[in-house]
Amino acid sequence: MTDPEMTAEELHELARGQADLGEVRGAPAPDPVNAPMIRHWQQAMGDTNPVYLATGVAPPAMAQVWTMPGPGERPDDGSPVTDVLAALDRHGCTGVVATNCEQTYHRYARLGERLTPATRFTDLAGPKRTALGVGFFATWTVTWYAEDGAPVAEMLFRVLKFRPSETGPTTPYPLRPAVNQDTRFFWDGVEQGELRIQACADCGALRHPPGPMCPVCRSVARTHTVATGRGVLYSYVVHHHPPVPGRETPFAVGVVELQEGVRIVGNVVDCPIDKLEVGMPLRVTFRRMDDRLVLPMWTPEEA
């Protein structure tokens, strides 16, 4: 079963897997390229160009029309794109808006030929902040092949799948961290799926929580290391009462001792409360709380 709330990292993993499938052939068009559909299309568009029906070809921008699913038919059936979009929906990115459509026509399709589409998932980018909300850009290509196997037309299509920022199921998560220039690197990191630990650029000392000056060597030259995201549960609590805004009780909060040696606090998730144990191995997981906040959390490391 797919994790209902995949992290950004897991979404990228899924996307890479779908891209690795390469070009996936779909079902051939139900009808060959034909004059009635061309005439219907031209009339609806108000396109009076006589060249198409006069020379027995279809308007090139109709390429996709030939293989569109009918009402009630499932779109993208078998396409490598479907799983990625569904996972983005479950991630809360239920909004969708197309951003790019680029079509290349090798030649005009001819009356009587039947086109077959083939889809290739090419890229998932994000999470990114957009005017609509935080979301991911998913890009795929479709090539329409003639019966002789030669490509007739190609399309690159890109959509933004976003977490609706005004309407929809997400309300702002109320427990917000204060962030300033000393701590911003950490929160920028979790937004990108990285657990960043401050390191002194001079003496190398790691430090969490971070601060502006190295308490060991007095340096203000700071950098960070990206933690492996593995550690052990050093201590934990299970909060039952009173209710906490933005949270459902009970929930677990742990102090995690990282492989790198520093400790960090975060929720322990995907673990029954009675299975929590000091010393249990954990790995980091990144959970989106709303369109502006991702929190690093901890999940049991499978043996």
Binding site: L175, V237, H239, V244, V253, M297
Partner: peptide
């Protein structure tokens, strides 16, 4: 800022 390493995780009460 100190609280910000704890409060977002719901670690908000003296008891906890």
């Amino acid at each position: 800022l100190e609280m910000s390493w704890h409060v977002p995780f719901g670690l908000v009460t003296p008891a906890a």
